[in-house]
């Protein structure tokens, strides 16, 4: 077990930020902490890293209790903070060297590690650049280089793709998967469900400081009734159309979103054909048609009654 968190409680006055939160990270796993802003993801990370004192609970990393002075544990942890934490006055190389130097004292070894980390995040051509000269995406990559240069066994990434362009985001996500392949266990927090779905082998969905669901993405999706979402563009939407669709077998819900008819269906074959035939039989004109499996947002919506991005 890499991380084991049991019954973690953290209060800010009357506000309960973490309410008996539990978490386990196994070796070689990419664990996603998914939840809307303010759900307690960052608080949980800060408690795990002993940056915050907590009111109750136990935290173990690599089988040992975590504390602010557990330096032997800290030595094997790489942290990439939500906010970019680098020195404006130091170049890309100097920044990476500084943070790596806090873990690795051997100069020669460090030089190789720093070069490797800079190359890994694709900043080889920007070694002598100061952070001010880097774009948002490159700055995030520098933040990652500083966190992983010492080759940690455990990497904690707290929303590393916030305010990053899609191309840089893909680079970062690919990099995380590469780090995992190289043997690092990873905790990845985000409120972007697509990212979590893309890279995490196991996911914990959080809300109001609690774990509301945990498992692989397939396990999570199987927790809800809907297995297919059909969206049809209808030219003359009216209440009669909805009543007709709702009466069909396997249809769990049907709603209009503007001109788009959104139908959620349960387990069954040919759900899409069934809906289209019904529309055709009733002379209802339709245009674009989509069919997709449920997302983590649907899981969150069904469990909490609100959307992840609310």
């Amino acid at each position: 077990m890499v991380i084991k968190v049991e019954n973690l409680v953290k209060r800010y006055g009357d506000l309960i930020a973490l309410d008996h939160f539990n978490m386990e990270l196994h070796e070689g796993e990419v664990l996603g902490l998914l939840g809307p802003n303010g759900s307690g993801k960052t608080t949980a990370i800060n408690c795990i890293l002993s940056l915050l004192k907590y009111d109750k609970g136990n935290i173990e990393i690599f089988g040992k209790p975590m504390s602010p002075d557990a330096y032997d544990i800290k030595r094997d942890i790489g942290i990439i903070m939500q906010n970019v934490a680098v020195f404006e006055e130091l170049t890309v190389y100097e920044n990476t060297d500084y943070f790596c130097g806090l873990y690795v004292t051997d100069k020669k070894k460090r030089r190789a590690l720093v070069d490797e980390a800079i190359e890994f995040v694709g900043l080889k051509d920007f070694k002598k650049f100061y952070p001010k000269k880097l774009s948002g995406g490159l700055l995030r990559r520098l933040n990652i280089a500083c966190g992983i240069a010492h080759k940690p066994k455990l990497i904690i990434l707290d929303e590393p793709t916030v305010a990053v362009d899609p191309q840089s985001r893909n680079n970062i996500l690919e990099g995380i998967l590469r780090l995992n392949k190289e043997g690092a266990s990873i905790v990845y927090t985000s409120h972007y469900m697509e990212e979590v779905e893309q890279i995490c082998s196991r996911i914990i969905i959080m809300d109001k400081g609690k774990t509301i669901a945990a498992g692989t993405k397939d396990e999570l999706k199987s927790m809800i009734k809907a297995v297919e979402k059909v969206t049809v563009e209808v030219y003359q939407p009216n209440e009669g159309v909805l009543t007709g669709i709702r009466s069909l077998n396997n249809v769990i819900s049907a709603e209009f979103d503007g001109e788009m008819l959104v139908v959620k269906c349960g387990k069954g074959s040919h759900n899409l054909m069934m809906i289209l035939e019904h529309l055709k039989a009733n002379d209802i004109l339709f245009g674009k048609v989509y069919s997709e499996p449920p997302t983590l947002n649907d899981v969150f919506l069904e469990i909490t009654g609100k959307e992840l991005r609310d």
Binding site: S50, L51, P68, Y71, K74, R75, M81, F99
Partner: peptide, 8 residues
């Protein structure tokens, strides 16, 4: 905070 995460 970043410095506090390091083994120093």
């Amino acid at each position: 905070r970043r410095n506090h995460c390091a083994p120093i």
